[in-house]
Design a protein around this nucleic acid. Structure first.
Lengths: 173, 173
DNA sequence: CGGTATTTGATATGGTGCATAACAATTATC
DNA sequence: GATAATTGTTATGCACCATATCAAATACCG
């Protein structure tokens, strides 16, 4: 595994040096053999994940939302009245790291922290009107550009099967 | 999206408070609604990737190899006589970041840099005997523990289909 | 040939994500 | 009412990723 975002794209620069064409090679720099790397699920998994995240960022670029931020907005919309610990936990974010993330969203007026009257330790998280508007626009971009592109590449049936298997791994592995 | 390694596991701590059982609830802290997050391919993709990498680390822990290190050893074995740029490129690692990585492998005597006689700028990378031995053991652990577990979870056919789709995304998305 | 551009490995540096420890304020427990 | 637990927070360190820059070596080209 490994895989970053940019690089590896120009790996093809190591191609032919401009001689022969048919079946005669003097000492070419052939493409590297991937070997059993092609059979490593984790390797393809990571490369695919980077590609998908990259496309997500491009598709939702006008709204300046990262995948993580989008997931927070989605959760806040579907689960009003929750505090930071609850939201962070279900997203797999550690509470300390969630603080700066919320600061970012709150400074953009996409959500707000409200001191709970029941438990004055916790902050109830709510979407602002602007947050709801941005989320709505983001959903449209994701559906019409991002997910649509994946559907086009794999086909609806395969896409559904892929999602199901990934969810299975995430849940039971 | 978001997803880290540990957290989110204890999200269930927010469960029932120890009252009622059938269909009567007074004000429970129910599980959060994932909403359209369940349909976001990138979200499941990342969660699955983290799980798979985590399992990989556990399975190959006796050899102290990360997924990235394993992929380098695999490539070196299948592609002798290559230099740092070539290996780094095909793995999607940026050359500057590959230096420290190689330092680590070389300091453990798993591989070695050899100045090329043709081009004295480049370092030909080779596996040491120890490197080959470690790689062989790692392959066995990965096959018998890691990949076997995925096969068991998904079934061989599904696993193959999953790998194919991930490779497609990594290649054409 | 000689000068310029390119390539290779390397260093320095900054950003981001992830993880742990520790703390004050508040609440729960007994 | 004393002690323990929880919530949000800060500080900190590590790993990964990306860019600019550099010296040495090579390629290129007039």
């Amino acid at each position: 595994m490994t895989v970053s975002k940019t690089a590896a794209v120009d790996a093809a620069k190591t191609s032919r040096s401009a001689r022969k064409e048919p079946a005669e090679a003097t000492a070419e720099a052939a493409a590297l053999q991937m070997g059993e790397l092609s059979e490593l699920l984790g390797y393809s998994l990571k490369r695919a994940q980077l590609k998908v995240f990259d496309d997500f960022l491009r598709c939702v670029a006008p709204l300046q939302l990262t995948p993580a931020q989008f997931s927070v907005l989605l959760l806040l919309d579907k689960n009003p009245g929750r505090n930071q610990t609850e939201i962070a936990n279900t997203l797999g974010i550690l509470r300390p790291n969630f603080v700066a993330m919320l600061d970012g969203l709150e400074s953009r007026d996409l959500c707000a922290r409200i001191r709970s009257t029941n438990d004055r330790r916790s902050h109830i998280l709510v979407l602002t009107d602007k947050g709801r508007a941005v989320l709505a626009r983001a959903k449209k971009l994701v559906a019409s550009k991002h997910e649509a592109r994946l559907n086009e590449l794999l086909g609806p049936a395969n896409r559904a099967a892929l999602l199901d298997m990934l969810a299975t791994i995430a849940r039971e592995f």
